[in-house]
Design a binder for these strands. Structure first.
Lengths: 330, 330
DNA sequence: CACCCCTCAGGGAGCGCTCCCTCATCCTTT
DNA sequence: AAAGGATGAGGGAGCGCTCCCTGAGGGGTG
């Protein structure tokens, strides 16, 4: 069951190790006949280069770490962000022949492990996902000089990122509700240690402020449960609320549930708008109006950014646009 | 920015490379004072062993490939199976100090890449997820002698797996509907090239058969869209249908949507039962009755199985139990 | 025709680590 | 007290690969 080495292939092909190496690595300075005989031997022996040996000398790994830094927060296991991002990223990296090493950094301990791992030079670059503002990881990674790109903005200003136009999206949502004639427009925020949450909240506030209306804010943490809870709070605090902008769809879904239980009709009594336009948004009752932000596109852009960084490209952030998808809930 | 090597650490500590190696690898045959002085040097220099070099000689990688073999099937990006499994597996492997190399095998081409990759000895074992019955990958991987464990049963009989009691779960669902007095119980199946789909269908059929009732079957593919479509079909084929057992929750959610649009009340006119009890099941309107099968537990069991396999454990399958969670939809 | 240059194959050092083997030291045992 | 055994440190080969360097051979130029 021993795998053939370069040397064995060379012997079989009757050429030197160097030539085989050149052929395998696609160098052009090889005579066609040597090329052919080597390829033949490679095929016959089922030769696969040993990545460890190669990595040992080249210092390149062809691997990228995808670090999902995020507290486990209970059972939010079907968080669509996670699968969309991981899936897209994996697909995109696969296409350029790079491996994905997935790392969940849920505790300080595992965060330390990530640092050690990355410091060990096992990967060519790191993509960061879902960090709260205070997370020390981005800065720590950036400090070790390895290419790092972040999905969403982080507190570490020197880490290039790809983010949405969050404030713009929130403005879209709120303007839409105003146009529908809503007067008491509340919001359910995401965790405020996340930039996106803060920006969405700020967009909501700014838009209302322009019309002289006051903000009605309840705090959530991007989970369905928190959305349901926040909606209950909102109903209690201000029974006349007639519209809600939830900072993501999961929370909007939670809010929908609370409204249903409380006997409020959507959109007749209360209009609801979410953010992200996840697939489930089209399957709620009533179907959810949402700010569409293609997480997949954002993920792709982040991968591209990281790859560019690895090639020595410029470290500049990217902002993705978004649009409003109007459905039954508003 | 050059990383220190074993040799440098040895020099600093005033001992031999061998001793440093022993300390770093936690061998016990080292005098405490040498241990201490080495640890000190390691700390001071921030030494992290080079995995490539280590792997080159030991042939161990401490990495496990998680292969998600699955056609891209459009936008089913928030498939809860994916995130739950990947997340759980990652967490579990992290805990035992192993890396996760995530590979999406969506095309024949990438499947070939997986084979080559695994053949290259880059990982100590492979965990397979979500394969359709005809997938040649499991057999191919098993053939190369590497430990392989599958999340769910596959066609390759020699690949150990962890599966649910699918037929039993279906029976639970159907019996429950019968007890509720339903007479025309239909089912929406998953893709029939999946064992789980076939087993759930078989469980449904067998249970109905025992009561002398006939089966009413519509085909789905585990997505919301397909559930909605199948429900439409069912309504058309048999307008008197008064209960539906969907082979997973996502399709049940799709069915709920169709029923809502068709003006049928749930559960009054039609009762709906899903399978998996994903988080979203509690957030539908009405909340979904579902067969609970902890995907997380199943994923954990699969990891354990794989780790045992790597240690040379026995190759025997594991079957997980399930229970019915009754909510408003039935 | 002689010389030089260019192209391209082969030789071999060395990447950082492990692990086998040797050997020094100290403790036991008779 | 001498010899054998246990313990544990050090030396060094070698894992499979890349890449620099050397040098052979062929073609072009004056």
């Amino acid at each position: 069951m021993k795998r053939p080495t370069l040397e064995v292939v060379a012997a079989r092909a009757g050429v030197s190790k160097s030539s085989v190496s050149r052929v395998v690595n696609g160098e052009t300075t090889v005579a066609p006949e040597i090329r052919d005989v080597v390829m033949q031997a490679v095929r016959e022996l089922g030769y696969v280069p040993n990545a460890a040996a190669r990595n040992l000398v080249t210092r390149r790994t062809d691997a990228v770490a995808v670090v999902v830094s995020d507290p486990p927060k209970g059972v939010v296991s079907d968080d669509p962000l996670f699968s969309t991002v991981v899936r897209t990223v994996s697909r995109e990296l696969e296409a350029v022949g790079r491996r994905v090493v997935l790392i969940l950094a849920e505790s300080d301990e595992s965060r330390a492990r990530v640092e050690r791992y990355v410091a060990g030079g096992h990967v060519d670059g790191v993509m960061l996902v879902a960090l709260h503002g205070a997370d020390p990881l981005p800065a720590a990674l950036a400090r070790m000089g390895l290419p790092v790109a972040s999905f969403n903005r982080t507190a570490a200003t020197d880490v290039p990122y790809v983010a949405l136009d969050n404030a713009g999206g929130a403005e879209l949502a709120v303007r839409h509700l105003l146009e529908r004639g809503r007067r008491r427009i509340a919001t359910i925020t995401g965790p405020l240690d996340l930039y996106e949450s803060r920006e969405r909240l700020e967009g909501y506030r700014a838009t209302l402020r322009d019309t002289g209306r006051r903000s009605i804010v309840a705090l959530g943490d991007f989970t369905r449960v928190s959305g349901a809870e926040a909606m209950r709070q909102l109903l209690e605090d201000d029974p006349d609320v007639d519209a809600v902008f939830a900072a993501n769809d999961l929370m909007a879904i939670g809010a929908l549930r609370t409204l249903h239980q409380a006997g409020r009709r959507v959109p007749d009594d209360v209009a609801v708008v979410g953010f992200d336009d996840i697939e489930a948004a089209a399957y709620t009752t009533p179907a959810l109006t949402s700010v569409r932000s293609s997480m997949a596109d954002q993920a792709t852009a982040t991968v591209r950014l990281l790859l560019a960084l690895i090639e020595g490209g410029p470290r500049k952030p990217v902002i993705m646009p978004n649009e409003l998808v109007v459905r039954e809930s508003s």
